[in-house]
Design a protein around this nucleic acid. Sequence first.
DNA 1: TAGATACGTCAATATGGCTGCCCCATCTTC
DNA 2: GAAGATGGGGCAGCCATATTGACGTATCTA
Lengths: 169, 169
Amino acid sequence: MAAPSSVSAAPTASPLFLREHEVRRGVELLFFGYTRLTRAIDDGLAEHGLGRAHHRALYFIARQPDLTISELLKILAITKQSLGRVLTDLAEKALVETRTGVVDRRQKLLRLTAEGVRFEAQLFDALRTSLASAYAAAGQESVTGFWRVLEGLIPAEDKAMVIALQKDI
Amino acid sequence: MAAPSSVSAAPTASPLFLREHEVRRGVELLFFGYTRLTRAIDDGLAEHGLGRAHHRALYFIARQPDLTISELLKILAITKQSLGRVLTDLAEKALVETRTGVVDRRQKLLRLTAEGVRFEAQLFDALRTSLASAYAAAGQESVTGFWRVLEGLIPAEDKAMVIALQKDI
DNA sequence: TAGATACGTCAATATGGCTGCCCCATCTTC
DNA sequence: GAAGATGGGGCAGCCATATTGACGTATCTA
């Protein structure tokens, strides 16, 4: 794959054609890392009869109180129907509550209840334990690199959304 | 866990209690990065009437020809039933073939057919495009950090498996 | 030969996604 | 004030992917 740099006539390989090994390594580590991290909260969720889809909604509502439905839809990138079921479950379990929008009364503003806050924090703790130990083992420099590469995987049209999330804390 | 060498009385916070912000950032970037990367191959899969589960099997068979069923089960961490359906589909589409094990005739050794190799390579190309551009934007140092953190997320009992995968290429 | 292992398979069930269609309330624009 | 756009809710039906538990067969190992 890598063109020898000594040959001047043929341009060297574009950075888009990195050695296959490096790409495969990333694909695999992302797969294992992501799946193993999410597995850390399955037990906590199961105790409440909830699944990962519920956690994702819970998580982003925790992160941005007064989020609207359509904003949450953009973040999760699922359909209204799918989200509807999840939010119904969360409301029934009194983990999430909605209020009518103030500037636009068509909107619903999503918030966690006190119990929702408690539960999300409990789940987050499991995530923190896993991720913090990975951070600690890798060192701060590695963490920065970890963030940079992942940011590069987010398509331009989604980037503003992700950055907005991270402004709040 | 590391005791601060300078302060003797009050220990600083353990590395396991990193600032919440840093952990949330990692959780979110992993979510967006992973989901956006996997989305890159959905169209290619759909053309063949296959889903992501099929790709995961295809991918790891490509990576380790003559993989056995039980090894693949460990990697994917799903049930025999679930994998069975996926492999049946792949066999019907003539993307995967099996041979009886040589050292142990109970085993089935999984391999891609020529068409399977071609198809996996095509899908891989979409992954490479995404990941390579993220690598290029972040720089080689970042890529190393990216790998290190992700490795730290893999539980000890799975680590040998992942490392074994990466020895082959 | 007895037991463990590798694989296949049955039936039933859960979860979390999807499409297409239609509804109402509210905001915006003309 | 009317027309249309937007935010949200909901119905019916479907699909993909996962689960459990039990059982069967071939093969290996002690």
